[in-house]
């Protein structure tokens, strides 16, 4: 049987990116790309439209059933087909699938894999450690390699609605245990998608009070950009929602302009901004680690510099 690379994600947008990456990797050694799908015909069609050559259809999931209940089915399928590689979307749910699957396969998962490279045969990937303070290059050496990949690592291909392929239905394997879903609270839909923002004003703990965030919103308003933050402002202080923080555990951004105010520039944060085109930093500490990582460095009190900047930008319009 020809070598297969599999992809799995419960998030359609991420699944599209995984397929794009898998196709790239498959090219090198003539493998084919199959998507493991939990969902209806529409989800299956979408997988084909994004480039999957085959779909393993696990069936639809009733609203009160957990995706986790499908893990035994994925395990048994993987064991019987031994794909060379399975790339799973790096959501929390995806990491649960990856962890339990790799334990069952006697493998290890490489999570949040980046920069896939297969020049040396096998797949080498990089994985950030110490919150972005260092990079590890890793290579899995098991029959089936399990990896998770986050969003914005590879761009999805333009969909081709007429693409079709083989669908293999997979019988459901009853799990040994089940959790009962008692309640499901939808989080309010994300108000921003930092990953696509062209301009970002990022606030850090240099902001003294929650009310002062208005300054950042004013500036972002004039620049027609989004407000982002460091983690302490979202987790801990709760001044802003989670989806607004940048860094290893938050969003990765690539705007044309990233402007920080009162952000010290710890690696855990700045790994998320390295792909920004222009970086401006405002901080009152001239030794702040953000400065060597910035294009324009303003040592000063943000409470003076930012209002002046807002006034000057307004005057310009």
């Amino acid at each position: 049987m020809a070598k297969e690379i599999w992809v799995f994600s419960e998030k359609p947008a991420l699944l599209a990116e995984l397929i794009a990456n898998a196709l790239q990797l498959a090219k090198a050694d003539g493998a084919s790309v199959a998507a493991v799908v939990v969902g209806n015909q529409q989800v299956i069609d979408q997988a084909f439209a994004q480039g999957a050559q085959k779909v393993y259809a696990l069936g639809e999931k009733a609203a009160d059933v957990l995706l986790d209940d499908f893990i035994p089915t994925i395990i048994s399928l993987t064991k019987s087909k031994t794909p060379a590689l399975i790339i799973i979307g790096a959501t929390r749910q995806g990491k649960a699938v990856a962890g339990r699957l790799s334990a069952a396969l006697d493998a290890s998962t490489i999570t949040d894999a980046k920069y896939f490279n297969q020049d040396s045969g096998g797949i080498e990937v990089t994985h950030l450690i110490f919150g972005g303070g260092a990079i590890r290059i890793e290579k899995a050496n098991t029959a089936t390699v399990v990896m998770t990949q986050g969003s914005s690592i590879v761009d999805a291909l333009p969909p081709n609605a007429s693409a079709k392929g083989e669908v293999e239905s997979v019988p459901f394997v009853q799990p040994a245990w089940k959790a009962t879903l008692v309640e499901r609270k939808q989080k309010p839909p994300a108000s921003v998608n930092l990953a696509v923002a062209k301009k970002i004003v990022c606030v850090g703990r240099g902001i003294a009070k929650k009310e002062d965030l208005s300054m950042a919103f004013d500036l972002a308003g004039i620049l027609e950009g989004e407000v982002a933050a460091t983690r302490p402002l979202t987790e801990g202080l709760d001044w802003l929602p989670r989806e607004r923080y940048i860094g290893v555990s938050g969003a990765t951004v690539k705007p044309d302009l990233y402007l920080s105010m009162g952000v010290s520039g710890q690696a855990q944060h700045t790994v998320g901004i390295t792909d920004s085109r222009v970086i401006v930093a405002i901080d009152k500490d001239k030794e702040a680690p953000i400065f060597p990582q910035a294009d324009y460095c303003i040592v000063g009190d943000l409470y003076q510099v930012v209002p002046a900047l807002i006034t000057a930008l307004k005057a310009r319009k």
Partner: peptide, 20 residues
């Protein structure tokens, strides 16, 4: 199950570092 091929510091992008 996973071989570690290298561990290194991230390359810092070359920034202009212009002081204003």
């Amino acid at each position: 199950r996973v071989d570690v091929l290298a561990v290194r510091a991230p390359k810092s992008a070359d920034r202009k570092r212009i002081k204003i």
